[in-house]
Structures are given as structure tokens and as C-alpha cells.
Computed example of a mutant assay.
Amino acid sequence: MLTPPVTTEESLKIPSDRPLIVWAVSDGRAGIHNQVLGLAEAIAALTPTQIVVRHIRYRRLFDRWPTALRLWPDVMLKRDSDLIGPPYPDIWIAAGRATLPHSLRMRRRSQGKTLVVQLQDPRLPSGRFDMVIAPKHDEVKGENVLPLLGSTHRVTPERLSREAAHWAESLSKFRAPFIAVLIGGRSKSHDISPARAETLVQQIRAAVKGKKTTLLLSVSRRTPDAARAILTEGLKDLDGIIYEGKGDNPYFAFLNAADHILVTEDSVNMATEAAATGKPVHILPMDARGTGAKFGRFHQGLQEYGAARPWSGELRFWKYPPLNETNRAAKAVLALYNQTHPDENR
């Protein structure tokens, strides 16, 4: 397990005649993209940085091939995929199975000049990368592994305030307090049945009416159609805003305005982002499709930190320091870069 040295933010600023070049690499899916971009942006907040986004997508024939068989990953890419070629970045931040063949080759291709950081559990020996940043609940082992409570993300007070400005007029029509309800959907481990959706509707209605709150509801693309219809129809008469995926996404504005945040238990990203606000996070139960052991460890960690509690049907209030694991990860990456590349870019 990696133990970053104690540093000050001033010591992490890299003196150079040009900004640090950081590539944020993913397959473009929002949940993965936001993790790599969030960490890159956190680095940029500590030292002058140019962020370059790269999306890796394979042709259909090769899309499901295991990493070990992608021996020529460059020629296997779709035409609309970003090319991975020189000049290479100072720091490579990648996440997702699609990025692994390129991450594994980056140190050799850059002749050791690029620091290779892989997010999530690569399911490969961690020593094949310079650093692996993985959720604690994945229990990834290795001397260069930095475990985090949850995932990296793009939620900062500055971003929430900036994004909220676009929704200020719409939100001004309603009165505080606000309750943000973030609904996920079907995954390998969870689902929302019509019966579960009905139960959530009744509980949310009771909470909103009992505390005279304004509802801010967001449903996911993964939300099953039947559950989506039940939730939106059952709650549409309440004061507030319901976002179903069309038009501008008010997600950050919802987090900024919320006094309470309700999050379904299927999403590590949403729960971690909610915990970054310092507001009470209530974890909504779903229907289990698997053992859910990893999610159990994650939610236990959030509870021990003080950010989240299982949804009781009541809007209870508590305080805790906003969870800021992305900033901790950014400091660790810069500290390692300074240690391993002391003469680069100076």
C-alpha cells in the first residue's frame, strides 16, 4: 500500500517553463471519464497543467477481447478513437478495461518519461504501472497502490457554484429546504423492480410532504423503464424539478442546492460525489442481483467516515467534513512525479 510523503501544496507546484501535460484517458463513458478528468483537474488546481482528453474505443471485432490478446492495440481502434502517439504526456491517467493495453505500453513508449497512473482495479499486478489508485472496497494489494474511499470525481465547491448559476432562475421558483434524489438502475449487483419503485415513491412523498421540502429528482439511463415511469409519475405532482435525461443536466446544481441527498446504493460514483458536499447522504435500498459484498464494504466505509446512513424514511440531519479523496490522490500523484522525475520539465 502506497503511503504518500507529507507535502505542502506549495511544494507540489512544479517549476517549469511550460505547464505539466496530463492525459485523461478513458473509453468516454461518463462514469469513467469523470474519474480520470476529475483527478486531472485536481492536479491542475495544484500546479499549472494542460489537460488533454483521450478516448479509446475498439472496433466491434476486438471490443470484448481480453487485454492479453490485444497485442496490437493501436490498429484495433475505431476510426473515431483518439490516436495514442507522441509526444507523450508527463502524466498518463487512465481508467477502464479499454485503456489497459495502452497503459501497459506507455512507460516503454515514452522511454520512462511518462508517469503511468491507473484508476480502479486493473486486475493485473500493480507493479506494471507506476501507481494504481483504487477504491478501498476493491481491496487491491501492492506497494504502489493508493486506496481511496470511493472514487475520484469532478465535484468541488467551485464547480457546484459555477454550474448552479445556470439553474438559479429555475430553482428560485421553489423554496428551501431541497431534497435531491439520485436514482441509478440495473447493474450486475443491483436492480429496481416496480415494487421497489413504488415503495420509494411512498417514502419519498412522505418525507417531502412531512418536511415541506422541494424535490430535485434525477433518474439514470440505467433506470429500468417500469421503475422510471413509476417514480416520475408518482412524484410529478410535488414541487420541484424532475430530470429524465433530456436537455441540460442539472446534476451539479442539484448537489449544490440540496440540503439532503438520497442516493441509490448501486453507484459508488454518485455516493462519493454526494459525500464531497458535506451534506447528509441517505442510501436508498435496491433489489439485490448478486452478493454486493464490495458495495457493502464501501457503504460501511462511508458510514464510518460519517457521510452516509441507510435511508430510514426520515430526513435526519448530521454534519461531517466534506470527503475530499480526489485532492488527496492528486497530491500523491504529484509527489510521486516529483520523486521519480526530478529533472523533468525543469
Rank of each mutant, 00 (worst) to 15 (best):
M1P: 13
R59F: 15
S81K: 03
V263W: 01
R29E: 10
A45D: 08
H153G: 08
H33Y: 14
L12N: 10
G290V: 14
A42N: 08
T272L: 11
G184T: 08
I14P: 04
H153T: 05
G296A: 14
A226F: 15
K319F: 09
T213D: 03
A276R: 01
K294Y: 15
S126L: 05
N324I: 07
M131P: 09
P321H: 05
L39A: 09
L238W: 14
P322C: 06
V116H: 02
R109V: 06
G96R: 06
P310L: 03
R128G: 08
A258K: 05
A332R: 04
V208F: 15
F129P: 00
N269H: 02
R221P: 09
L77W: 12
L262V: 12
G85Y: 10
L124Q: 12
I51F: 07
D63T: 15
R159P: 08
S172E: 02
L69C: 05
M1A: 12
V36P: 07
E198T: 08
P122V: 12
V181K: 00
H33W: 06
A274C: 00
A134S: 07
A180K: 01
L284E: 02
A227T: 07
E41W: 02
S126C: 12
I56E: 04
R70N: 06
D121H: 07
K236F: 12
R128S: 06
T277R: 06
S312L: 15
P125F: 02
P15L: 01
R221K: 10
I204W: 03
G150Q: 14
A44Y: 05
V333Q: 04
Q303Y: 11
L336K: 08
Y243I: 02
A68N: 13
E273L: 00
P122M: 11
S110P: 03
I241L: 08
V268L: 07
I192T: 09
G306I: 05
K136F: 15
F317Y: 06
G290Y: 12
S110L: 13
G150S: 04
A98I: 15
I241Y: 00
L146N: 11
H341I: 11
A195K: 08
L37W: 07
T156Y: 04
G142L: 06
D63R: 11
I204M: 13
V155W: 00
G292P: 01
S26Q: 00
R297M: 07
A229T: 12
I179M: 14
V145M: 09
R154G: 05
L323W: 15
A207E: 04
F317P: 09
N324S: 02
D121T: 04
L160F: 05
P321Y: 03
L171D: 00
E314F: 13
R97M: 10
T277Q: 01
I91K: 00
A257G: 09
G234P: 13
P122I: 02
D248V: 02
R309G: 09
T223H: 01
G210L: 08
M106C: 13
T272R: 01
K279Q: 03
I241V: 06
N144K: 12
S267T: 03
A42Q: 07
D266C: 06
R297W: 09
F174Q: 00
Q35P: 13
I91R: 02
P250G: 11
